[in-house]
Design a protein around this nucleic acid. Structure first.
Lengths: 342, 342
DNA sequence: TGAGAATATGCAATCGATTGCACTTTAAAA
DNA sequence: TTTTAAAGTGCAATCGATTGCATATTCTCA
């Protein structure tokens, strides 16, 4: 093996011919140790290159100062930005962050959740996989009263804090905007509506139509997994309808983008002949031509908020639990793809 | 506190009136335990909802099955994709991943590195902050022979494995491409050249010019931090030169993009009047108009490779160390912003 | 000067899993 | 039937830091 592993408080104690307890107390600034002794110990600790073993401390304290994050895919802009926000708050509060991605697979999500539990994370922040329809694995946390915060794709049944956007309002705002721009046959590309986020958005979409006395036409609503490919399939399908739509509200910017590409290719003018609005304001949405109207989710702020809520719950063990669902504001960003008034 | 914390091997032992050692061995499939006993123990463990305490195990085994990643910014596409690759391999090999972001601040990087060390990660993967010019904090790892892998922004001096792209070739390829397209007064927007990655790229840029008997003009090389704002400043500055350039090779796609935006705004035609090539193939580069020529780094594969190297080194403790620098291929992607032959 | 208070430090158990060594039981060999 | 080997378990120490409960020393005031 390597050279003698690491310096421990016992090594320091031996060096100074005192007990390890005193060293531990001194390094933690326990008032029971005199200033003189503390200084001496700290000096020696520094000289010997002491680095505390957090593992040992964690075991003894039953606390790891670590929070787990589970997202479907780390390199999706929304998620990585969210994670960035979590990390920011966590770091400033003295917490580490373990991340894992479920790849939208329930089985992987289960394994991850178990592993994070075994690693005794102090709390968990999770956005569910697209496949997740049962929640037994999460009861590992809820049963043991380990703080849990959902965001984005949440489990409505479970008692936990939740960070979401008002998806109903999103659907309403997006659709109303298209109506305001004069579109009348508005389609909707929805994700799997078992997930409340997609379900609510569709409700908002329908509500907007009704409010404006426009018919809700079944065949104009398409459900899929919202990949790039799905977007292209969807627009082809929609254009082939007897009475094709003149605009689409897409479940995400990715599908909206692939629709724009397709429409440009076949020569349909945006926004003149066809309006498009997406969701989540990806980095590319601003720069594509025509630029893509969308709704912005405050990803970084959601991460910060999730971390704050979680850490607050971790450190306030004795508070009676009261679970909140925090709705973050979304912002309608009107760009070229849907703006034909001006 | 909560209900009695968790089930331990001692609880299982008591339940079965056997010793904890036997339980431990049974759960780890130690051959010294009979099949009969094993089955009995596993059944009870399951029934009691036993979840191993990884912390305790880590302490005893002096191994955490955790690797640390430090990147400047988690939500940069290159980094989050890299992380995604690391996570993939780590998960499949039974490792957890702790991530932190330095925000390109040396001080934060130092704190993170110390914290990860104290958390006894089995290895570390790091891309240095833009400010990092001293490496004492990393000696914490190298001195103790804890595996360390650099990627992207590496410390050339230190003995460790490194994953990079051939930045010299990048500079060469990008510049040669612009020359091939008929541009003659090619500028370069470089990052801080203390970082070898930017330094090498600039060398490649200059080599390409020389090889084609084009002059290397000092004032056409600009150094900054490559933010969006920096890109705009740079293009303004370049256009105001006595003898302004007719093309730019940008240190990243972000600055290339902001240049495109600016040039479009003031009516300079791309690629006819001005050529642009960026670096790293951001998601937006493909969809901006004109689409942006760039060089693609295999971020996900780099993450996989880094994880493989690191984990291999972790698990091969007794191998004599031999450090490699792995150069990953980059791909020149020619798009509209620099293509005027066809 | 002596008693109690205040101050400073040490002992040993604890967190939960692992493992070298020892012990017991059973089976096989002599 | 006795000896020896093999198989199956348990004891207790260990990983490193923390902390309740002593104990030891110094100080203060009657």
């Amino acid at each position: 093996m390597d050279k003698k592993s690491s310096v421990t408080i016992h090594d320091i104690a031996r060096e100074l011919k005192i007990s390890a307890s005193t060293v531990s107390r001194a390094l933690n600034d326990n008032p029971r140790i005199s200033r003189f002794t503390k200084d001496k110990i700290k000096a020696v600790a520094l000289k010997m290159g002491y680095q505390p073993n957090t593992i040992a401390s964690n075991l003894r304290n039953q606390k790891t100062n670590t929070i787990g994050i589970v997202v479907p895919l780390i390199n999706r802009h929304f998620f990585s930005t969210f994670i960035s926000g979590v990390e920011e708050v966590a770091f400033n509060t003295g917490y580490n962050v373990i991340i894992s991605q479920s790849n939208d697979l329930l089985e992987k999500e289960k394994k991850i959740v178990h592993s994070l539990f075994s690693n005794r994370v102090d709390g968990l922040i999770i956005s569910l996989s697209m496949q997740t329809d049962k929640f037994d694995h999460l009861e590992l946390f809820t049963n043991k009263n380990i703080p849990l915060v959902f965001f984005d794709r949440v489990a409505p049944q479970l008692k936990a804090n939740k960070i979401v956007v008002d998806d109903y309002a999103v659907g309403l705002k997006a659709t109303q905007h298209l109506i305001d721009e004069g579109y009348r046959r508005i389609a909707h590309l929805a994700g799997p509506t078992v997930l409340n986020t997609y379900h609510d958005r569709m409700e908002g979409y329908m509500a907007a139509l009704r409010k404006n006395n426009l018919p809700v036409v079944e065949e104009r609503i398409i459900y899929n997994r919202l990949t790039r490919m799905d977007g292209q399939e969807a627009i082809k399908h929609l254009l082939n309808l007897q009475n094709p739509p003149d605009a689409v509200f897409c479940g995400n910017d990715t599908t909206a983008l692939s629709m724009i590409m397709y429409l440009k290719r076949i020569g349909i003018r945006i926004p003149d002949d066809f309006g498009i609005i997406g969701f989540s304001n990806e980095p590319f949405s601003e720069v594509v031509t025509p630029s893509l109207s969308t709704l912005k989710q405050p990803a970084f702020e959601m991460g910060e908020k999730a971390a704050e809520l979680l850490i607050h719950e971790i450190e306030d063990k004795h508070q009676p639990r009261e679970y909140r669902t925090i709705t973050m504001p979304t912002e309608l960003i009107i760009r070229e793809s849907s703006f034909r008034k001006g």
